[in-house]
């Protein structure tokens, strides 16, 4: 438990850390984002398409990307595929190398 606590305390300092949250209200390029109970003002300047109810990845006061809940569920299923069905029949993540 102590280890996990140290990790949490450190998170505030990590420079490339980004945290997922959900937009609960918006006004003029700024949003109030809920991080599992903690609410903070976040700039939406870098994700102009974001709207209320969307999940966003937040880094240093800016939302830097929209998060896709459907893809999150797919990722969890991918884990189950890779790790619990054994060799050979694991589904693949989408290849990203081709345009």
């Amino acid at each position: 438990m102590a280890r996990r606590r140290v990790w949490r305390e450190n998170k505030g300092n990590l420079m490339c850390l980004a945290v997922p949250g959900r937009i609960i209200s918006m006004k003029k390029g700024s949003a109030e984002v809920d991080f599992s109970g903690i609410k903070r003002a976040v700039s939406l300047d870098l994700v102009p398409a974001a709207k209320k109810g969307d999940y966003v990845l937040v880094h240093a006061g800016f939302a830097i990307q929209l998060l896709d809940p459907g893809e999150a569920v797919k990722t969890l299923e991918l884990f189950k595929g890779i790790f619990s069905e054994g060799p050979g029949d694991a589904p693949q993540a989408p290849a990203a190398g081709k345009p």
Binding site: L57, P94, G97
Partner: peptide, 13 residues
């Protein structure tokens, strides 16, 4: 070798 995306819930091409 190729570029795979495990973090596709946040990373688009």
């Amino acid at each position: 070798p190729r570029v795979e995306d495990e973090y596709f819930r946040a990373v688009r091409q």
